[in-house]
Computed example of a mutant assay.
Amino acid sequence: MKRRRIEHGLTQRELASRSNVSYGSLRLFEETGKISLESVVKIAFALEAEAEFERLFPGRPPQDINDVIDRPLKQRVRKK
């Protein structure tokens, strides 16, 4: 995140203002990596990095033809 902030030419205070995350939280994040999920999402949007979150939970590759057929995604799992 720090590298991306610098690539965008932003100071910590500027990024804090743009992302609506406190300067202290942003500074602590750069120093320790500790921050709330909500704040990291705000920072990601401010740095135009929101698409990076898609890599956290990649889709499973198809296992058989039923995985490829166009059908609605399950909304929940029911235990039998």
Rank of each mutant, 00 (worst) to 15 (best):
residue 73 L to G: 06
residue 71 R to M: 08
residue 43 I to Q: 05
residue 10 L to Q: 02
residue 4 R to Y: 11
residue 61 P to V: 01
residue 37 L to A: 12
residue 77 V to Y: 09
residue 17 S to Y: 15
residue 36 S to C: 07
residue 14 E to C: 04
residue 27 R to Q: 12
residue 63 Q to Y: 06
residue 25 S to I: 01
residue 50 E to V: 06
residue 32 T to A: 00
residue 22 S to M: 09
residue 14 E to K: 14
residue 24 G to R: 12
residue 10 L to H: 01
residue 42 K to E: 08
residue 34 K to D: 09
residue 30 E to W: 04
residue 40 V to Q: 05
residue 24 G to D: 12
residue 49 A to E: 14
residue 12 Q to N: 06
residue 44 A to M: 08
residue 16 A to N: 01
residue 43 I to P: 01
residue 63 Q to K: 15
residue 53 F to I: 15
residue 43 I to M: 04
residue 68 V to F: 08
residue 56 L to V: 02
residue 58 P to Y: 01
residue 36 S to L: 02
residue 19 S to N: 03
residue 74 K to S: 05
residue 17 S to E: 13
residue 37 L to N: 03
residue 58 P to R: 00
residue 80 K to Q: 07
residue 28 L to V: 08
residue 33 G to D: 10
residue 48 E to Y: 07
residue 20 N to D: 15
residue 77 V to K: 13
residue 59 G to I: 12
residue 3 R to F: 14
residue 3 R to G: 13
residue 8 H to G: 08
residue 41 V to N: 04
residue 28 L to R: 13
residue 53 F to C: 04
residue 68 V to R: 07
residue 70 D to R: 15
residue 36 S to P: 05
residue 22 S to L: 10
residue 54 E to D: 15
residue 24 G to F: 05
residue 8 H to A: 15
residue 59 G to M: 14
residue 41 V to L: 09
residue 46 A to D: 00
residue 31 E to M: 04
residue 16 A to V: 09
residue 63 Q to R: 13
residue 65 I to G: 05
residue 6 I to S: 10
residue 27 R to K: 15
residue 2 K to T: 02
residue 49 A to F: 08
residue 3 R to V: 15
residue 23 Y to K: 09
residue 26 L to R: 04
residue 44 A to G: 06
residue 30 E to N: 09
residue 39 S to N: 15
residue 2 K to I: 07
residue 35 I to P: 02
residue 42 K to F: 03
residue 55 R to F: 02
residue 10 L to K: 07
residue 7 E to A: 12
residue 42 K to V: 01
residue 41 V to I: 15
residue 63 Q to N: 09
residue 59 G to S: 12
residue 36 S to V: 06
residue 76 R to A: 11
residue 1 M to Y: 11
residue 62 P to L: 03
residue 45 F to M: 09
residue 37 L to P: 01
residue 30 E to M: 02
residue 22 S to H: 09
residue 26 L to Y: 00
residue 58 P to V: 02
residue 60 R to C: 12
residue 80 K to M: 05
residue 45 F to P: 00
residue 33 G to K: 04
residue 8 H to W: 03
residue 20 N to F: 11
residue 20 N to T: 09
residue 78 R to E: 13
residue 15 L to T: 00
residue 77 V to P: 07
residue 63 Q to W: 03
residue 24 G to V: 04
residue 45 F to E: 10
residue 79 K to R: 15
residue 39 S to D: 07
